[in-house]
Design a binder for these strands. Structure first.
Length: 202
DNA sequence: TCGATCACACCACTCTGTGA
DNA sequence: TCACAGAGTGGTGTGATCGA
């Protein structure tokens, strides 16, 4: 049985997808077993790959705005774990970034999820994360529009299906104004509750 | 300094292959 | 032949870059 540190070390040393990654391997995750909020994202972008800091881009700015938290809280692994579906930057295809590598989730995801016993909130971002976490095959719009079905008061962790916060995704947000009008305020309320309930604060 | 152009990074739709 | 899954492509607004 690996310790948490050993598992993280193995993840960070993983080169499973090396033959398929034009920019090489660089797993970018944020993980601590104490984390109460999980961000299940898609895959790192180019800038994140270069810096090694998750959501260190305009997508991250918007995500933090949606969550209503500061960068300090966002990058505190004891509060927030960040596990994309693919840990490394997959490179670009003919139209935007390639999807996360398939090898990553089966190899690592469940092992890491099993070591997050304190999770109270999961943000499931993008279609690949939604397929894995929610076992749903509908479109992002379809799944996110039923967010109330996943966010149940009496169930922990509460799950918020969300679109990707990339500025390039403004089209979706424009077409679906209910997301920022209804889901985001509820998300902020839940996050506030989770953080205020943290015994390590204060 | 301002306008034009291009790259970016997603979502959604369409096409193609495979299996029943 | 039909249904499903996966791959490929198109559409989109913003921001960065470059030239006038």
């Amino acid at each position: 049985m690996l310790t948490d540190q050993q598992l993280i070390a193995r993840v960070k040393a993983c080169d499973l997808c090396l033959p398929h990654l034009p920019d090489g391997v660089r797993p970018v995750i944020q993980f601590d077993p104490q984390a109460r909020i999980l961000i299940a994202a898609q895959a790192p972008g180019r800038r994140v790959h270069e810096t090694g800091i998750p959501f260190n881009d305009p997508s991250g700015d918007r995500l933090r705005q949606w969550m209503g938290i500061t960068p300090e809280t966002f990058y505190d692994p004891r509060q927030v774990a960040i596990l994309p579906m693919g840990f490394c930057y997959p490179g670009t295809g003919k139209s935007g970034d390639l999807p996360p590598r398939k090898e990553c989730a089966p190899q690592w995801r469940q092992q890491l999820m099993d070591r997050l016993p304190n999770l109270q909130l999961i943000l499931v971002i993008g279609q690949y994360a939604q397929a894995w976490h929610l076992s749903e095959k509908g479109s992002v719009t379809e799944i996110v529009s039923h967010w109330r079905d996943y966010v149940k008061q009496d169930q922990a962790p509460a799950v918020f299906p969300m679109p990707h916060p990339s500025p390039r995704n403004n089209i979706w947000l424009k077409r679906n104004p209910w997301f920022e009008e209804a889901l985001v305020p509820e998300l902020q309320t839940r996050i506030h509750q989770v953080l205020m309930a943290d015994p390590s604060r204060g």
